[in-house]
């Protein structure tokens, strides 16, 4: 629609342009403390306009420790439940027991965080009025509810030592929902207008899958005798590798919306996450077969996963608060479309 205008703005400029610009620069410098990043941010400055620097989209109103913790616990619980069911089938009673406890505890706690994050917690059950495939939170509700019920019940009977057959059934049900439980949360974040989440909508599910495997495997390693914990170690290392690989793809993406993953608090979280995850995976390979090594590496892997969730969450929040992450990619998209259009006309 705007493509027909020969001179955008026809020479009109914001009346107090100079002062407004100075404000913005000050703000930016505060954001990207490190020298290189600050420069990077400033180069982009000239290329976009905004309404007094105001954000265009609204940042999520989700509370900050709640939602990242929910993402972490849901992931760890999901992968642990799968590990527990498989360990049960392959006669590894300790691993199975630990996996069920991690799954049950994580599931119940994550429900708690989710409900606590609602503006009207007493209306939690309104989520079950409808089922909407367009809403990741609605779909997620129908993953989380059976998963947490099954995983919680399985952990409870495991603790009490009752009904072994029911326990196996509950474990199988929770394992069935474990995978979706670990990855649907990525769609939850990506299916929003938040630039740094939405842009990576095909990558985030793999970050979360990897991170969940690292966390679930890591937590199971901590509490399982080393000679039974082989599968947990393998899953944790594979998960860490996936997480590190896909996070690297996101961070090195040439789009401006990968910038928030490097800057400020999100950048520090992501850096710490990579360090913990890589160290945890390395330590698992070297010393995972010793008790002390298993505890140390499992803790590092879980910490890495947790930090990744905080980093991804914060990067999205930062991208929502700065209008440039909304405007510049949309402008680039329009320019690309115009170029495409022009080329079909000349042909």
């Amino acid at each position: 629609m705007t493509s027909g205008i020969a001179t955008p703005g026809a020479g009109w400029r914001k009346a107090d342009g100079a002062a407004a610009q100075k404000n913005q620069k000050r703000r930016r410098r505060g954001n990207g403390r490190r020298g290189r990043n600050a420069e990077m941010a400033m180069v982009d400055e000239a290329e976009f306009t905004s309404y007094y620097g105001r954000p265009i989209i609204k940042a999520p109103v989700w509370k900050t420790p709640d939602v990242p913790l929910y993402l972490f616990l849901g992931g760890a619980a999901g992968t642990s439940s799968i590990l527990a069911a498989l360990a049960d089938a392959s006669a590894r009673p300790s691993l199975s027991r630990v996996g069920r406890f991690v799954a049950g505890g994580g599931a119940i706690a994550s429900v708690g965080f989710l409900v606590h994050d609602l503006g009207r917690p007493e209306r939690f059950l309104h989520m079950l009025r409808v089922m909407k495939p367009t809403s990741a939170l609605s779909v997620g509700t129908y993953i989380l509810s059976p998963f947490s019920a099954a995983a919680g019940a399985t952990a409870a009977v495991e603790l009490l030592g009752w009904f072994p057959r029911l326990k196996r059934f509950g474990g199988a049900v929770s394992a069935l929902f474990g995978g979706p439980m670990a990855t649907y949360t990525a769609v939850l974040l990506a299916n929003t207008a938040v630039p740094s989440w939405n842009h990576f909508h095909t990558k985030l599910p793999f970050v979360f899958a990897g991170s969940a495997m690292a966390a679930g495997g890591g937590l199971c390693m901590i509490f399982t005798p080393v000679d039974e914990a082989g599968p947990a170690r393998k899953m944790a290392v594979a998960g860490a590798a996936v997480e590190l690989g896909v996070v690297h793809q996101i961070e090195s993406d040439e789009s401006i919306v990968s910038e928030p993953y490097h800057l400020g608090r999100a950048g520090r979280f992501m850096q710490a996450a990579k360090t913990c995850t890589a160290a945890g995976a390395g330590l698992t390979v070297v010393a995972g077969r010793t008790r002390l090594g298993a505890v140390a590496s499992g803790t590092l892997l879980a910490a890495g996963s947790l930090l990744t969730r905080f980093g991804v969450f914060d990067a999205g929040m930062a991208s929502a608060r700065d209008p440039k992450y909304t405007v510049i990619p949309q402008r680039e998209r329009m320019a690309a479309r115009d170029r495409e259009h022009a080329s079909t006309i000349t042909r």
Binding site: P205, F206, P231, M235, G239
Partner: peptide, 17 residues
């Protein structure tokens, strides 16, 4: 992508066991 990720988790867990 989420379904593929979930399948990947199951695949990794099975092969780990």
């Amino acid at each position: 992508a989420a379904a593929t990720g979930a399948a990947m988790i199951v695949g990794v867990a099975v092969s780990a066991v």
